[in-house]
């Protein structure tokens, strides 16, 4: 089964990297990184910071678009276009197909995000003559955030339409970024507000924790145990979401 999952992943990666829409978003991301020059030129001070912030922002925006488009289409398109009928008529159990597709998606998103990070690093060296390898750590944080978002979208796409799964993904991205703010209501006088805020806090992914800002400003160092906790937490999201997606697809009527 591992070999079959590997080949599903390999086909998914090849398909995603050849998808013109995703390639288009990648090139928009590259253009936005180059556009950092204009922003930096307008800055009176901290030219370097403007370059880095614009570039990492470009990686984040491109990452979100790629994740939303690829994630919402990953399983949904195959089911909608009946492509799945050819694939699943082979000795390939449905859960293995879901696992293979999800791994393929996560690898493809990694390739695109770290390719953009490499473009940013080289462009930064070219423009400012400074090597700033922290950019890779910042982009790794962005990648972990996208991993969590990907899995939510893939799960939503199993139970709803492509557009609704994109919409739900945007909501998760916005709400997950503000999850820490919910703690304000934990001491609220209303028991309902207390209960709801606690429920939402634990249900939503805390995407704010994956913010690359502190890493880039150099104000915070990232200890290995924190990095491990972040990777572990993202991996847990992947396992739970893939399990739920596999359960949904296992029961789904495909025709």
């Amino acid at each position: 089964m591992i070999r079959r999952a590997f080949w599903v992943s390999a086909a998914t990666i090849a398909e995603l990297l050849k998808d013109r829409t995703i390639a288009g978003v990648f090139f928009v991301g590259v253009a936005m990184i180059f556009g950092g020059y204009v922003v930096a030129e307008m800055a009176v001070v901290e030219r370097m910071k403007m370059f880095v912030d614009t570039g990492v922002g470009a990686v984040f925006v491109a990452g979100v678009f790629i994740t939303l488009m690829a994630g919402s289409n990953l399983l949904g398109r195959e089911i909608r276009d009946k492509e799945i009928l050819c694939t699943l008529s082979k000795p390939l159990p449905r859960p293995v197909w879901v696992v293979g597709k999800t791994i393929g998606l996560l690898v493809a998103v990694a390739v695109l995000i770290f390719s953009l990070a490499t473009v940013l690093l080289i462009y930064l060296k070219f423009q400012t003559n400074v090597w700033k390898p922290e950019i890779f750590l910042a982009c790794f944080f962005i990648y972990l955030e996208m991993v969590i978002l990907c899995n939510y979208i893939v799960l939503f796409s199993c139970v709803t339409t492509q557009y609704l799964s994109v919409f739900s993904g945007i909501l998760i991205l916005l709400a997950g970024g503000m999850a820490d703010d919910l703690k304000i209501y934990w001491d609220s006088a209303s028991p309902l507000a207390q209960g709801m805020s606690r429920l939402l806090y634990y249900a939503l992914p805390n995407l704010g924790a994956y913010s690359p800002g502190p890493v880039l400003s150099g104000s915070v160092s990232v200890p290995a145990n924190l990095l491990f906790a972040m990777v572990f937490s993202a991996a847990m999201y992947v396992i739970v979401a893939v399990t739920l997606s596999a359960l949904v697809i296992r029961k789904k009527e495909l025709a």
Binding site: A11, A14, E15, K18, D19, K82, E83, C86
Partner: peptide, 10 residues
């Protein structure tokens, strides 16, 4: 299947 589609970008 009717109208088979298989890995369109490959």
């Amino acid at each position: 299947p009717d109208n088979p589609v298989l890995y369109p970008y490959l």
